[in-house]
């Protein structure tokens, strides 16, 4: 290969490497930019005074992001084990379940999934897959019940 041919080849390779390297890095950064930045912020929020909730009672708690959470008391000890907080999101495909009082079950209208009061699947696709309703962590402090939920969507957070 003569000098001219070598220079021509070398400059073509340099150009190709510049294009691939330059725009490749740009594309990688763009991909990283579009990928959601971080897991959403979580925090402990007050639910209810433990004493004002009798065993067998339940309530619907609305998290800051708008999700409804069924909170029920099933025991008398006054410990955190008395309580469960069930996600209303069906583990099958993400529809919202609702409580059916007469059947004592949570029911998902999308594919007829059903769950018992503890969140265990008793019918439909979730039962076949052995899925239960998700649970939120709970904590009792000074007789007050707290729940850990996603904080995103808190009003006023953007101004802060």
């Amino acid at each position: 290969m003569d000098r001219r041919g070598f220079l021509s080849r070398a400059s073509s390779i340099a150009m190709g490497a510049g294009l691939v390297g330059g725009y490749g890095v740009f594309a990688a950064m763009a991909g990283r930019f579009l990928y959601p930045a971080r897991p959403s912020l979580k925090g402990w929020l007050f639910v209810i005074d433990v004493a004002s909730m009798k065993p067998g009672a339940s309530l619907t708690y609305t998290a800051p992001d708008g999700a409804t959470i069924a909170v029920a008391r099933q025991g008398l000890t006054g410990q955190v084990g008395d309580f469960i907080a069930l996600s209303s999101t069906c583990p099958h495909l993400g529809c919202k379940v609702h409580w059916e009082g007469q059947n004592q079950r949570f029911f998902c209208p999308c594919h007829n999934g059903a769950f018992d009061p503890s969140g265990k699947a008793i019918a439909g696709p979730p039962k076949e897959a052995g899925q239960s309703l998700g649970r939120y962590p709970l904590r009792i402090e000074n007789g007050l019940l707290f729940i850990e939920v996603p904080l995103e969507g808190l009003p006023g957070q953007e101004e802060a």
């Binding site: 950064m29 763009a30 990283r32 930019f33 990928y35 930045a37 971080r38 953007e158 101004e159």
Partner: peptide, 21 residues
């Protein structure tokens, strides 16, 4: 008006390489 400034701030401070773009 409620969200514009906050979203630009998010791009600048939080989103990966947002400041660069």
């Amino acid at each position: 008006p409620r969200t514009a400034y906050g979203s630009v701030k998010y791009i600048t401070d939080t989103a990966a390489y947002g400041w660069y773009f």
